[in-house]
Computed example of a mutant assay.
Amino acid sequence: MKNYTYISLREKPELKNCAAEWFHSKWGVPTEAYLECMEAYLNKKTEYGWYICLDENKIVGGLGVIENDFHARKDLTPNVCAVYTEEEYRCQGISGHLLNMVVEDLKSKNITPVYLITDHTSFYERYGWEFLCMVQGDGEPNMTRMYIHQ
Rank of each mutant, 00 (worst) to 15 (best):
N68H: 12
I66Q: 09
E88T: 04
L98W: 11
T118R: 07
H71Q: 13
H97Y: 14
E67W: 07
A82P: 08
L106K: 04
Y115W: 01
E104V: 00
I117N: 11
M101N: 15
N57A: 12
K74I: 14
L106V: 04
H120Q: 14
E67I: 05
H120L: 13
S108Q: 08
H97C: 10
L99N: 05
E104A: 15
I117H: 00
P113N: 12
K74C: 03
V114P: 09
T112N: 15
N79F: 04
Y84E: 06
H71Y: 11
E87Q: 13
G62L: 13
V60P: 10
D75A: 13
G62Q: 10
D105A: 02
R73L: 01
L76H: 14
I59H: 09
T85V: 15
H71L: 02
V80L: 12
I94L: 15
I94T: 09
G96V: 13
N100E: 14
C81M: 00
S95E: 04
T85H: 07
V102Y: 05
P78K: 05
G64M: 01
A72N: 11
A82Y: 03
E86C: 05
D69N: 12
I117F: 02
P78E: 08
V83I: 15
A82W: 07
L99K: 10
T77D: 06
I66T: 13
L76D: 08
V102F: 10
E88M: 00
G62F: 13
T112S: 15
N57C: 09
V80Q: 10
N57L: 08
E104R: 14
L116K: 13
L76P: 05
I59Q: 12
P113R: 12
H120C: 00
L99E: 03
Y84D: 00
V114H: 10
N57H: 11
Y89D: 01
D69C: 07
D69Y: 06
L99C: 07
N68R: 04
Y115M: 02
G93T: 13
T118P: 04
S95H: 01
G96D: 06
T85D: 04
E67M: 02
Y115H: 05
S95Q: 00
H71D: 15
T118V: 03
Y89T: 01
N100P: 07
V80C: 14
N57S: 15
H71P: 10
C81Y: 03
V103K: 14
V65G: 02
Y89E: 05
L99T: 02
V102K: 11
A72Y: 11
L99R: 08
C91V: 03
F70I: 00
G96S: 11
G93E: 13
G62W: 08
H97F: 15
G61H: 10
G64N: 06
N110C: 08
D75L: 11
G93A: 12
V80G: 09
Q92G: 00
D105F: 07
C81T: 12
P78N: 10
I94Y: 11
E67H: 09
I66N: 06
V80S: 03
C81F: 03
I59V: 12
A82G: 08
L98S: 09
L76K: 15
E86A: 09
V60M: 14
N68S: 12
T118H: 01
I94R: 09
T85F: 03
K58E: 15
F70H: 05
T121N: 10
I59A: 09
S95P: 00
R73Q: 08
L76W: 11
L76G: 03
